[in-house]
Amino acid sequence: MELFIEQSLNGLQLGLTIFLLAAGLTLVFGIMGVINLAHGSLFMVGAYGAALTAAKTGSWILGIAGGLAASALTGFLVEVAIVRRLYHRDHLYQVLATFGLILFFNGLVALLVGRAPLLMETPKALSGFVEILPGIPYPTYRLAVMAVGLTVALGLWLFIARTRTGMLIRAGSTNRSMVAALGVDIGRLYTLVFSLGAMLAGLAGLMVGPIRSVQIGMGEQVLILTFLVIVIGGIGSIRGAFVGSILIGLVDTLGRAYLPSLFKVFLTGSIADGLAGTLSSILIYLVMAVVLVVRPRGLFPVSE
């Protein structure tokens, strides 16, 4: 039971982290129609920005600021220099251009920082454990990550549902030429949304830093998870991204934790381990395949 609670919390934490990435990716696609593979690079930039700033200044708060600034600025530059030219292009070229960007960013980080992974320390104030239920301690840092994820989800919902900019974003995703015709500077709106998405990706990256190591290629692994999430949720839907993130986070974490013991009920040791290992690593892909067979446009389809 303790294990189940702990693993469920881990799953939630993974899900909420993925949501930070998925929200940006799904917004960028929903509003601008751009598929951005380089979203994982922005995640990496956020983590490196934070790790380097924190190491230089010795302050994790400055580290967070550094990570957010680095990813938002990178996102801004990428949008202005490249993504802006891709809005009306075929998805094929969007895939190719942003694939090129991934290569560039991976090479650039290797050149500037080196290939050795960076270690990022957990902030002192958050390094302890909290007893969530009698007898079940849980790392404070992971709880803090969840709190940030939930806060951002709530804030994003308020921003999109309640503010004027949010209204323009919703309008832009429904009919962009109409919004432009009404005198809204759609280019500026796009830049804003892209930079915001980049900053959220960077936030996810810098929060993951102390849990895993900060290294080149960290963005790609998480990018594919993010794709699964937004495909399952329905591309362009924030609500879908939220539900999909939590679903994938829980399925992946619990699958890895419980499949081996489940298989041992029916099968002997090594076969059970092998099968469970295989199945738990592809479980999330199976979930996606099932969702798409039943609902080809995801759980919360966005009408076009």
Partner: peptide, 14 residues
């Protein structure tokens, strides 16, 4: 080399 190769790929796409 990826620092140079990446932008070439981007340029082809654009």
């Amino acid at each position: 080399w990826q620092v140079i190769f990446g932008p070439i790929v981007v340029a082809v796409a654009l």
